[in-house]
Nucleic acid binder design. Structure first.
Length: 790
DNA sequence: CGCTGCATGCTTTTT
DNA sequence: GCATGCAGCG
């Protein structure tokens, strides 16, 4: 039986009586801070509770106060409370707020964390029950895909018709539903050219051989252990006296089973969520979990948090109007004591670039203070898009006008190529049998070790039943490699031997070792010699990676933790507008929010509707609800008639969600005639109507205003070259650049100044084409790039 | 083995 | 429009 460490020790010591733990003498002042619904949710400590918390209703406050109350009344010790979140950020926030409420650091809430982090902890204790060693490694998506690719090739399947990513998605889905290979239903097993389940089983076998798991396994293995070892399950059921779950609407089947199993004893489970904010169906979340709660947990108490502390009544009404279009809701009515404020604003544009230009100008106006609103800092404003490719229009525009912005989302720190490469070096140094890591870096930087050399090494390794690193060693000794590869691989193997010895030396600083590895492997040098605009950033990231090591005692510890902490906290200083996806905005709030791209096909996304029909449309509608409810004071929705999609111009109709906005709470900014056909003006019954009907009635494209715009836009389009030729070159301008200067720009790379117009430069970039950019965003670069300016 | 040039095919994203 | 991935050549 595996150890229960802190639990066992505690049980052996005997459970202190509840009264001795109770600190009720201190009173419960924190309860006075709550509204009646919140208070009800906090005080209903026993039995199943569903806290239905609408956007901005103080759910984190209720959740954390509930934890404080559990501790304060002596119902549970900190380590007897299981509190799960989806993200590290949410877990951190919760921990911090509990500590503030308790007025002290909560000594160990070891079981407050993400589903995955908690599962890692459980799985390390019981790894042997699913055929793993306790030091198993966690593969990221990249490793997962590379592994699957090997299996697909080995199974003689055409990887072009059946791409590894597709299989990865399929297996993820199955794992989300808690289907082990033997449990995949026959109907689904036909997937992936009839070989899906076979490959899934092969993949699991390979993972076991590598002593590795993927993210899905973390949950699935633990569920399997619980299902097959009643004694172990019973111990945890006893141990976790109270369970709290954040964002319950986002749980998938595996997480749901996990929770049900653990809550099976005390049944003290409190789930917090909002069915209207379920936006992760596409990655396995089941809204059904929250809709079914009362059936799953008979006698459940349902508490609704409906008082909103975030948004104005107009914003709430607009959001409510949209979400009312969904069936199968548990239903909530948000209300607020706030004053009316501004109506939600709606504006149409000719195309996506104009939309970006308008929003840029609007942001600058709001900075100065406009519409009777106080001047707003850029940190108070956000642009929320449906799909990340929409961000480019804004980035381009903001770079041109010199408006500071930050993109939230994007590739996470630990997902970046250079970070993964560096980590692969560390991994192999720490565990020489990490074949995936070795394979990743054997030819990075380029060592002249190509496909053929790698295949020889793999062959030797397999024939001798050893790791790739040892296979490489043997291949070199046996003269299996050609000239260049032989020398290089030999050197690499020697290096790893040396680094390995250093990892085992307790005197060796792991930070210095990490630097040494990156230096000696030639990895740092590779990026120093790289002339692409990304290279400096990558070197910067490597520096950051090494700095992050300081928080750990050794490389091993660092590697173990990092797999789960894919944080992307880029707290770049300075006032900046945030640009992010609607998904990325969940849980955030901003005084002013822009929601561009409300066009049918883009939002709601055509693909979502094609793939998931009405269910997909409803999820898109929830996304619209999430978007609007991020706004505190000012919410601006916009759409464009034309947009470049995959380089192709396409026109679209305004989103059907626009028709669903309640007219009383919307101010249409679009000039009359521009959008005369649909919203408010002409059609009182804009709530209904299918798309064809609206297309027929929308005289948008025939209206005089629209025509005017179109003409203007076309004129602009064709006149640009001549305008450019007429630019007055002002040599006295503030900028210190002259025509013909070679410059460097953070995003666009190298280019030459073609013309100067005030503080704006016309630059012909080597890679990015010609752009207008504010002078302060570029730096002088030497001729032919010999002088990299950092 | 590595580079270049063409064909392809696309949401959303945490862990 | 762009990144990725493959085939073909040096």
């Amino acid at each position: 039986m595996s150890s229960f460490d802190e639990n066992e020790a505690f049980e052996a010591a005997g459970r202190p009586s509840l009264s001795s733990l109770a600190m009720s003498a201190r009173g419960t002042p924190y309860l006075d801070d709550l509204n009646p619904a919140q208070r009800e949710a906090v005080e209903a400590l026993d039995g199943p509770v569903l806290m239905l918390a609408g956007a901005g209703t103080g759910k984190t406050k209720a959740l954390t106060t509930r934890i404080a109350h559990l501790l304060n009344t002596g119902r549970a010790r900190p380590n007897e409370i299981l509190a799960v979140t989806f993200t590290n950020k949410a877990a951190r926030e919760m921990k911090g707020r509990v500590e503030r409420l308790m007025g002290q650091t909560v000594e160990g809430m070891p079981w407050l964390g993400t589903f995955h982090a908690i599962c890692v902890k459980l799985l390390r204790r019981h790894a042997e029950l699913v055929g793993l060693k306790t030091n198993f490694t966690i593969l990221d998506t990249d490793d997962q895909v590379r592994l699957l690719k090997q299996l697909i090739v080995a199974a003689n399947i055409d990887e072009k018709r059946w791409p590894p990513r597709m299989l990865a998605g399929l297996i993820d889905n199955w794992k989300n539903r808690a289907w082990t290979p033997d449990k995949v239903p026959v109907a689904d097993a036909a997937a992936f050219n009839n070989r899906g389940v076979e490959l899934y089983a092969a993949y699991q076998a390979r993972l076991k051989a590598l002593n590795a798991v993927d993210f899905g396994d973390l949950l699935l293995h633990v569920v399997t252990i619980f299902q097959t070892h009643a004694d172990i399950l019973a111990q945890y059921q006893r141990w976790f006296r109270y369970i709290l779950v954040d964002e319950y609407q986002d749980t998938n089947v595996a997480q749901y089973l996990w929770l049900r199993l653990l809550a099976g004893g005390h049944k003290n489970i409190c789930c917090v969520g909002d069915d209207d904010q379920s936006i992760y169906g596409w990655r396995g979340a089941e809204v059904g979990n929250i809709l079914r709660f009362e059936k799953d947990f008979p006698g459940a108490k349902v508490v609704r948090l409906e008082q909103n502390y975030r948004s104005t009544p107009h914003i709430l009404a607009a959001a409510s109007g949209v979400i009312a279009g969904n069936a199968d809701r548990l239903g909530k009515t948000l209300w607020t004591e706030a004053n009316d404020g501004e109506k939600v604003r709606l504006i149409g544009h000719w195309d996506g670039e104009e939309e970006a230009r308008w929003i840029g100008e609007e942001i600058e106006a709001m900075q100065r203070g406009t519409r009777g609103l106080a001047p707003m800092g850029l940190d108070s404003m956000a642009i929320l898009v449906r799909a990340s490719h929409q961000m480019r229009a804004f980035e381009d525009r903001f770079l041109t006008i010199g408006l500071p912005y930050r993109v939230i989302g994007g590739p996470r720190f630990y997902e970046r190529m250079e970070i993964r490469d560096a980590m692969a070096y560390f991994r192999v140094a720490v565990s020489p049998d990490d074949d995936l890591g070795f394979e990743r870096i054997i030819n990075t930087p380029k060592r002249g070790v190509g496909d053929k050399a790698l295949q020889s090494i793999q062959r030797v390794a397999r024939a001798n039943g050893v790791s790739l690193l040892d296979g490489a060693r043997l291949a070199v000794a046996a003269g299996e490699l050609s000239g260049k590869a032989k020398g290089e691989v030999g050197k690499l193997v020697d290096s790893f031997d040396r680094w390995r010895r250093l990892t085992l030396n307790p005197q060796q600083s792991h930070i210095e070792l990490a630097e040494q590895i990156l230096e000696e492997s030639g990895y740092t040098e590779m990026w120093q010699n790289d002339k692409t605009p990304e290279a400096p950033g990558r070197l910067e990231n490597l520096k950051e990676l090494v700095e992050a090591l300081e928080q750990f005692d050794n490389l091993q510890g660092f590697l173990e933790h990092v797999a789960l902490i894919m944080d992307n906290e880029t707290d770049e200083a300075g006032e900046k507008v945030s640009i992010m996806t609607l998904h990325g905005a969940k849980g955030l709030e901003f005084p002013a929010v822009f929601l561009p791209g409300w066009e049918d096909g883009l939002f709601p996304s055509q693909r979502s509707m094609d793939e998931s029909g009405l269910k997909g449309l409803e999820e898109e509608r929830r996304l619209a609800y999430v978007g609007i409810t991020r706004a505190e004071e000012l919410c601006t929705i916009s759409f464009a008639a034309n947009r470049r999609v995959y380089g192709q111009w396409q026109s679209a109709l305004p989103s059907r969600f626009i028709d669903e906005l309640p007219a009383d709470h919307v101010e249409v900014l679009t000039p009359p005639g521009l959008y005369g056909g649909g919203y408010g003006a002409a059609a009182p019954g804009f709530g209904g109507g299918d798309i064809e009907e609206r297309a027929a009635s929308a005289n948008v494209y025939n209206s005089p205003g629209w025509r005017r715009l179109q003409e203007r836009s076309q004129m602009r389009g064709t006149s640009q070259p001549s305008e450019a030729r007429n630019i007055v070159i002002d040599m006295t301008a503030v900028s210190s650049f002259t025509q013909g200067d070679r410059i460097f720009h953070q995003k666009f790379g190298y280019g030459y100044v073609m013309a100067i117009e005030g503080d704006k430069l016309d630059i012909e970039f080597e890679k990015a084409g010609s752009k207008k950019v504010v002078a302060k965003f570029v730096v002088a670069a030497g001729r032919d790039g010999e002088d990299v300016p950092f």
